[in-house]
Amino acid sequence: MPAKVAGAGASSSSAPLTVPAPRPPVIAGTLYRGHEGMWSWVLHRITGVAIYFFLLVHILDTALVRVSPEAYNVVIESYKTPIMGLGELALVGAIGFHALNGLRIILVDFWSVGTRHQRALFWGVLGLWAVLMIGFAPRHLIHVFGG
């Protein structure tokens, strides 16, 4: 809890127009506190942009095989590191969320009572996503770190 500034309440006794020191921490206003709908949209945007950049790199490295198969092998070999393994996990997580939430958005738009159940639909998306990741993550991580 931030300490209270004494000047605000007691300003009547001193000079009438004492302006307390400005508060620096929150500069551009508070963050809007949206609920599930807003955060699902934020996550959808972030995962969407991330997947776009992955696809860009993915098309470039796959296209390399037509230019030079040796160079392609070198590039693909360089991906087989633990860091890239974790990146793959993040990629599957991002695609899984984007796909499931995309289905939720379709339901919100086209199912006549979708807008009333959007919150439950969002938790449904997170539940399915968790099941997906519980199935995928252990196998994948054993593969990456198990040698």
Partner: peptide
Amino acid sequence: CRTTFNCSEACPRGIEVTKAIAEVK
């Protein structure tokens, strides 16, 4: 409209705003 539902949650009259927008769509 990207269906973030902030409007429905903010409305002081309890209007289902996102639902109304979806109906116009």
